[in-house]
């Protein structure tokens, strides 16, 4: 069905006399955002395991709630061809479907980089993506230290009940070679976690605890997923 939608987008835009969109493919890789893992409450975290279960990624023309790039009309004279999204609670509008990768994958986030697969898409202005995690979601294991305190933890698996929408991805896709990198910011995911508030325990982490709540909110936060286009050298 999605493939039909993509074709319809391509055909309808071409029929309007605008820039004819071209079907293309591009690879997607998954990695992490490098940097120290320190929570807002001052816990330094060392991970021994970081498993992320991915189900699919879908690309859309609509801009994310918070834009990282310039306004479309300022850099793209044909930007009016695609619908836009508006900053409004409850009103994130994905817009037109531009591409998709529907290949489930479990990623070891402690590895440098993992190829996910090849996405099918069309050329045009991309504004955001939607990330669906697999049933196992994200599970982190490790040790958190703060002064003389040390906490061994296992978050257990957490998958958001709905797809993570509105991940910023501003890119004018043409037919040139390149790939999409989805980098997971583990520091941002862990930033809300206070390992002093683990409820009945940290290994496994009490799902009713504020610490787990912070972990889950981190996984659901679409700003922790950084999507960028990397042109081929």
């Amino acid at each position: 069905m999605k493939r039909v939608a993509l074709l319809l987008v391509s055909l309808s835009l071409a029929a309007c006399g605008g820039t004819a969109q071209t079907r293309r493919t591009f690879p997607v890789v998954v990695s992490t955002v490098p940097g120290p893992l320190v929570t807002d409450s001052g816990w330094a975290v060392t991970l021994s395991s970081a498993q992320l279960s991915l189900a699919s990624v879908r690309f859309f023309s609509g801009e994310a709630l918070v834009r990282r790039g310039p306004l479309p009309w300022r850099f793209d004279p044909l930007g009016w061809l695609v619908p836009s999204a508006w900053a409004h609670p409850g009103h994130y509008v994905p817009g037109a479907a531009m591409g998709e990768l529907l290949q489930p994958l479990t990623v070891d986030l402690l590895a440098a980089e993992t190829p996910w697969g090849t996405a099918d898409g069309v050329t045009g202005t991309y504004g955001s993506l939607q990330l669906s995690l697999g049933a196992e979601g994200l599970r982190l294991k490790g040790t958190a230290t703060k002064g003389a305190d040390s906490v061994v933890f296992d978050t257990g698996s957490f998958a958001p009940p709905a797809a993570i929408e509105g991940v910023p991805f501003s890119h004018v896709m043409d037919t040139s070679a390149g790939r999409v990198r989805v980098a997971v910011d583990l520091a941002a995911i862990l930033s809300r976690v206070d390992f002093a508030l683990v409820g009945s325990g940290a290994d496994p982490l009490d799902p009713a605890s504020p610490a787990f709540n912070g972990f889950a909110r981190g996984v659901e936060d679409s700003s922790v997923y950084h999507a960028t286009w990397e042109a081929a050298e």
Binding site: D40, A64, Y92, G166, D194, L197, A216, S222
Partner: peptide
Amino acid sequence: VQLTALPLGQYGTGSAANVKTLKDFVFSL
């Protein structure tokens, strides 16, 4: 009030980074 003290499924922040407290949330709204 940290958002982590509120029930999961409420006060989600979407792609708005660094919204951690109810004051941050109300200011964003």
